[in-house]
Write a protein that binds this DNA or RNA. Structure first.
Length: 638
DNA sequence: GCCCACACTTAGAATTCACGTT
DNA sequence: AACGTGAATTCTAAGTGTGGGC
C-alpha cells in the first residue's frame, strides 16, 4: 500500500515563492469582513495552498527558477544489513520504525512485481543529465521544492554556470539526485548503471549552503520569515460552514516528489452557491468541484503512488463539526457504557460457555477488548503491514505502527480455557479468532447498545481510569507540583493501558548518566555538610570552602547547617524523582491519550476542584481543541 | 452476507520553537 | 552566538467503521 516517499527536512520555501502561489487570492488579513457566504450545509472554503512543483510556470521575472531540495533523512540504525535490502526499501527514507514496518511490505512487493525499478535514465559522456521519469514511478519518491525565482544577488552568483543549461524539469530531478550524494541509494542492480560522467557536487553544495544560510538566520529574521509565511497562509486557513467561520485543518497538499502534484489533481467540496475558489497553482485548475453536504472534507486528492487512497483536507480541531463528533465520542463512551456495561459484561461472561463457538469467540474477544483496551483489528490487505488487533490476534504479532504488544494478564478461568481451545491446532501465524472479524464483532456490539463499537471500549477505559485515579489519590495539602504529578501519573497509567509507546530518545542514556553524575555530586555535598555539622557541634573549625565549593568567611552555626542539609536532601529527592519519572516515561507517550481518549471534562473538572490552572494541563493547541469542555461543572465525573 | 471504497480518527516521529546555559 | 533540552507543532501513515453494490 504505501509509498516509499522519502522523508525530508522541509526547506523553508522563500516567502516570495509563496506569494506567487497565493497571488490569485483576495487579500484578507481580516477575514471577518469577508463577503457573505454561501448557505449550504458545509462549506464555502478558501483556496488551498497547493505546493506545485512547477513553480517556474511564472517566469515573468525572466529568470529561471532555482532548484532547492530538502535533505534526505535515512533511518539511523539499520546499516547492518543494508546490502541485503532491495533497492526499494533502501529508498525508504523514513523513520526507523516506519522503515521496519514498510520493509516487509516493500520486500513483498518487490518480489511480486519484477517490473521495477522504474526510473530510467540516460547519461551521456558530457555532464548533461537526463533522468526520465516514468508515469507510474513509485520507486523514488522524493519531495522537493522549487526555489523562488527572485534570488538574492549573492545567491545568484553562487549558481553554477552550467546550471543555466538545465531545463527546469531536469534541474528538479538532478537536484533530487544530488542531495542523495551522501547516501548509497542507487544500487548495482538499479536500472541506472552509471552516473559517473555527472558531477552533482555543485548542486549538492549549493543546496547545503542554502540550508546552512537558513540555519544562520538570526532569530528576528526567522521570526519575520515565519510571520510572513503565516500571513500568507492565513487566507487559506479558514472556511465558512453554515455561515460560521471555522479553522481548516492541515490544508497543504503534500509537496511533490517525482510525482508532480498540481491543482488539477485536487477535487474541492464547497457549497452549491459558493464562489469557486481560484486554484493557486498558476495555469492549473481543480480536478473537480463538488457540492456534497453529506461529508466534511473540503478537498481531496490522490497521490499516484497510492491511487487507491485519498488524502483529505478536513476542518480544524476547533471546528464545530470536529467538536461535535468529539463530544459524541465521549458521551457515547460515558453515558452509554455506564448504563450498559453491566449487562455487556454479564452477557459476555455468560457466553464464555456458550455452545456456539462463534458466540464464545465474540465473548472472549469482547472480554479482551474490555479488559485490555485492545483495538478491534480490522482485516488488512496483503500489501499492508502485518499488524493485528483483537479480532486478528495471532500468537506472535505487532500492533499498530508495528509496535510490539507484550503483556501478561491474568484472565478468568473460562477465558483461559477458551483461548487454549481456540489455539488448538493452530500455528503462530493463524488467527486466534477464526470465526470472527471486526465487523462481525461490531455488529454484535451494536445490538447490545446503539453506537457501540470496539473502539468505544478504549475511550471508556481510558477516561474512566483517569477519572478513577484522579479521584482516588487526593492528598490534602498537596502543593501544585504534587498535584500535577498526580495527574501525570494517572495520565501515564492510561497511556500504558492503551499501549501508547514512543521510541527511547537517542540521548536518553546519556542524559540519565548526566543526571546520575549530578546527584552523585549532590550526595557528596551532603556528606560533607554532615561532617561539617558534626564538627560544628563539637566546636571544631570548619573547612574553608563549603559543600558547594565556595569560599566562606565565617563558620556556620549548626542551625544554618541543618537548614542546608535539609535543602540538599530535598534537592536530591527532587532530582531522583525527576530521574525516575524520566526513566518511567522513556517509552510511554502521554500525548496520544490526552488528545484522543481522555474526556477533557475530567481534566477540567479536576483542575477546578483542585485549584490547578488548566494551562498547567493543556497547552494552547489542546486548550483550543477542548475549549468546549471549559465550562464543565467541577463535580463532573465521567 | 460479503467486499471494498470512502470517510474520518488515531498515532508516533520529525521538525520547529522557546528558552536556559555556557 | 552556540548549544542543549523539552515542549509544541507539523506531518502523514495507519488505523477504525460505515454503507452501498453485488
Amino acid at each position: 500500500m504505501d509509498t516509499n516517499r522519502a522523508k525530508m527536512v522541509p526547506s523553508t520555501m522563500s516567502s516570495a515563492q509563496e506569494n506567487r502561489s497565493f497571488v490569485a487570492q483576495e487579500t484578507s488579513d481580516d477575514s471577518e469582513d469577508e463577503k457573505p457566504i454561501a448557505a449550504s450545509r458545509l462549506v464555502r472554503t478558501q483556496v488551498l495552498s497547493i505546493r506545485g512543483s512547477h513553480a517556474n510556470s511564472d517566469d515573468s521575472k525572466g529568470e529561471k527558477p532555482m532548484v532547492t531540495a530538502r535533505q534526505l533523512v535515512k533511518p539511523s540504525q539499520d546499516s547492518e544489513d543494508d546490502d541485503d535490502k532491495p533497492l526499494s526499501s533502501r529508498l525508504l527514507l523514513t523513520p526507523k520504525s516506519k522503515y521496519e514496518k514498510r520493509k516487509r511490505l516493500l520486500d513483498h512487493r518487490a518480489n511480486s512485481s519484477p517490473k521495477r525499478p522504474k526510473v530510467s535514465h540516460a547519461c551521456s559522456s558530457t555532464s548533461t543529465l537526463k533522468i526520465k521519469e516514468e508515469k507510474d514511478d513509485d520507486l523514488i519518491q522524493i519531495s522537493q521544492r522549487i526555489k523562488e525565482p527572485t534570488l538574492l544577488t549573492e545567491k545568484k552568483a553562487m549558481r553554477p554556470k552550467w546550471f543555466e543549461t538545465f531545463d527546469p524539469e531536469q534541474e528538479e530531478v538532478a537536484t533530487i539526485y544530488a542531495v542523495m550524494k551522501d547516501t548509497d541509494y542507487v544500487q548495482k542492480n538499479h536500472v541506472i548503471r552509471r552516473l559517473d560522467g555527472c558531477d552533482f557536487t555543485p548542486i549538492y553544495e549549493w543546496c547545503m549552503k542554502e540550508k546552512q544560510d537558513r540555519k544562520q538566520m538570526s532569530r528576528e529574521e526567522k521570526k519575520a520569515a515565519g510571520a510572513e509565511k503565516k500571513k500568507q497562509e492565513e487566507k487559506y486557513a479558514w472556511a465558512f460552514v453554515d455561515g460560521e467561520k471555522e479553522r481548516v485543518g492541515s490544508f497543504k497538499v503534500e509537496p511533490p516528489g517525482l510525482f508532480r502534484g498540481r491543482g488539477d489533481d485536487v477535487t474541492i467540496n464547497i457549497g452549491q452557491d459558493a464562489p469557486v475558489p481560484e486554484c493557486p497553482v498558476p495555469g492549473e485548475r481543480w480536478k473537480e468541484v463538488r457540492h456534497d453536504d453529506t461529508v466534511t472534507w473540503l478537498a481531496l486528492w490522490t497521490d499516484p503512488i497510492n491511487p487507491k487512497k485519498f488524502k483529505y483536507v478536513f476542518l480544524g480541531e476547533s471546528s464545530s463539526l470536529k467538536i461535535e463528533s468529539d463530544q459524541k465520542k465521549y458521551e457515547n463512551a460515558r453515558r452509554m457504557l455506564k448504563d450498559y456495561i453491566g449487562k455487556i459484561r454479564a452477557d459476555y461472561s455468560r457466553d464464555f460457555t456458550s455452545k456456539d463457538c462463534a458466540k464464545r469467540q465474540i465473548a472472549v474477544a469482547t472480554y479482551l477488548i474490555d479488559k485490555l483496551a485492545l483495538k478491534g483489528g480490522n482485516e488488512k490487505g496483503e500489501e499492508e503491514a502485518d499488524t493485528v488487533g483483537c479480532c486478528t490476534l495471532k500468537f506472535n504479532f505487532l500492533g499498530k505502527d508495528s509496535i510490539r504488544y507484550q503483556n501478561n494478564v491474568e484472565v478468568e478461568v473460562p477465558v483461559y480455557k477458551e483461548i487454549r481451545q481456540f489455539q488448538a491446532g493452530k500455528r503462530g501465524g493463524d488467527h486466534l479468532f477464526d470465526k470472527l472479524d471486526a465487523s462481525r464483532l461490531n455488529a454484535h456490539l451494536k445490538q447490545q447498545m446503539p453506537g457501540l463499537t470496539a473502539k468505544v471500549f478504549r475511550t471508556y477505559n481510558a477516561s474512566i481510569t483517569l477519572d478513577d485515579l484522579l479521584n482516588k489519590e487526593i492528598k490534602d495539602k498537596a502543593d501544585l507540583s504534587e498535584k500535577v504529578a498526580v495527574y501525570n501519573h494517572a495520565n501515564k497509567e492510561v497511556a500504558i493501558i492503551c499501549n501508547h509507546q514512543r521510541t527511547i530518545s537517542k540521548s536518553h542514556e546519556e542524559q540519565m548518566s548526566k543526571l546520575m553524575e549530578k546527584t552523585g555530586g549532590l550526595r557528596d555535598n551532603l556528606k560533607e555538610l554532615k561532617t561539617t555539622l558534626e564538627r560544628a557541634k563539637r566546636g571544631k573549625p570548619q573547612p574553608l570552602t563549603d559543600a558547594d565549593g565556595k569560599k566562606r568567611k565565617r563558620n556556620l552555626t549548626p542551625d544554618e547547617l541543618e537548614k542546608k542539609i535539609a535543602q540538599k536532601t530535598a534537592d536530591i529527592g527532587n532530582m531522583e524523582m525527576g530521574m525516575r519519572t524520566k526513566e518511567d516515561l522513556k517509552t510511554v507517550a502521554l500525548g496520544t491519550s490526552k488528545l484522543n481518549y481522555l474526556d477533557p471534562r475530567i481534566t477540567v473538572a479536576w483542575c477546578k476542584r483542585n485549584q490547578v490552572p488548566i494551562e498547567r494541563m493543556f497547552n494552547t493547541t489542546q486548550l483550543r481543541k477542548f475549549a468546549w469542555a471549559m465550562t464543565v461543572d467541577p463535580d463532573f465525573r465521567f
